[in-house]
Amino acid sequence: MSHLAAPEPEHCPGPETENAGKASACDGCPNQSICATGPTGPDPAVAAIAARLTGVKHKILVLSGKGGVGKSTFSSNLSLFLSQDLDTQVGLLDIDICGPSVPKMVGLEGEQIRQSSSGWAPVYVSDNLAVMSIGFLMANQNDAVIWKGPKKNGMIKQFLKDVDWGDLDFLVVDTPPGTSDEHLSIVQYLKDAGITGAVLITTPQEVALQDVRREIDFCRKVGVPMIGLVENMSAFVCPKCNGESVIFPPTTGGAEGLAREQKIPFLGAIPLDPRIGISGDAGESFVDLYQDSPAYAAYVKVISAITKYCKETVPVPSV
């Protein structure tokens, strides 16, 4: 609404939703009476986003309730791997508003978004890999992004509605940890466009699996199909002898045990190869440079399962 008396508060249900002016978060808000008597209904941006993404075949969310398990690394390597086929068009959307690490990982740190006649133009790693991140809007990469929920949601809406993604075979969405604002926003905004599914990332130890259980519950509650679960950093791989050592013991069965427990597919385990981190820090492609690594072979297995799922699945709207 353009006639609000004050900015939307942090936990605002949305001025055009059914709970506008009625939710507990509305108590004491200067906008309460305006929202309660104003028009409500679906956010018109949902339809606009569906129209913008008509040419995008598959939208894949990369999720995990836990931070530090390698979501951004996996999202970047998944996108780089898919783009090895020059006939495959790939988009990588970073919606980690407060911690945008994708630009650095794919070698685009310091790049800026450009405006075109059809909207924001994404930044390209190669002719068939387009990237969008709030990192491209920051003058200083060390600046903290201190935004409340509505402002973060608005930025995600712009990334989907105002970016000229063109025709893509895959749009990979890298998310922050948790089940909060950014996650609810991306699911809601892709409601009509359809979500192919989510890939959930974890490490083997129980402290990570606990948070991933919550992410699985989130997916079930909001109607996001789960492509499957990936165990990241499953073991350490020596880059010289390719020997493996367990760093995070799977005390409760690891990701494979969790997948059985939750009755979702287990896509595979990716070992911890130091060259993965080195490549990300340098903005280089691990999947192009280190195909002799056991981690590369693991990526092949996992990504083959993802692409197989996509070929067999029609994206569905969320609830």
Score class of each variant (00 low, 15 high):
residue 156 I to E: 00
residue 49 I to T: 00
residue 67 G to C: 01
residue 282 A to D: 02
residue 98 C to H: 14
residue 192 D to P: 04
residue 228 G to K: 07
residue 205 Q to W: 05
residue 232 N to R: 12
residue 133 S to F: 01
residue 216 I to D: 00
residue 279 S to T: 07
residue 230 V to N: 00
residue 311 K to P: 02
residue 149 G to K: 11
residue 197 G to C: 10
residue 318 S to L: 08
residue 142 N to E: 14
residue 213 R to P: 01
residue 71 K to L: 06
residue 219 C to V: 15
residue 178 G to V: 08
residue 232 N to M: 11
residue 309 Y to Q: 04
residue 267 L to M: 04
residue 22 K to E: 12
residue 179 T to L: 06
residue 131 V to E: 02
residue 253 G to P: 06
residue 120 W to N: 05
residue 111 E to A: 14
residue 44 P to Q: 08
residue 248 F to K: 07
residue 134 I to G: 03
residue 242 N to D: 11
residue 38 G to Y: 07
residue 170 F to Y: 15
residue 44 P to K: 10
residue 240 K to C: 10
residue 70 G to C: 09
residue 153 N to S: 14
residue 213 R to I: 10
residue 33 S to P: 04
residue 142 N to G: 06
residue 215 E to S: 10
residue 11 H to M: 06
residue 103 P to N: 02
residue 201 I to H: 02
residue 80 L to P: 02
residue 161 K to M: 04
residue 30 P to E: 11
residue 119 G to F: 03
residue 85 D to S: 02
residue 112 Q to D: 02
residue 177 P to H: 08
residue 134 I to P: 00
residue 167 D to H: 15
residue 147 W to A: 09
residue 24 S to V: 10
residue 183 H to F: 11
residue 308 K to S: 13
residue 241 C to D: 01
residue 228 G to S: 13
residue 35 C to D: 06
residue 188 Q to E: 15
residue 219 C to P: 04
residue 263 K to D: 14
residue 169 D to A: 12
residue 286 F to M: 01
residue 74 F to V: 13
residue 316 V to H: 04
residue 12 C to T: 10
residue 233 M to G: 03
residue 258 L to V: 13
residue 191 K to H: 12
residue 270 I to D: 00
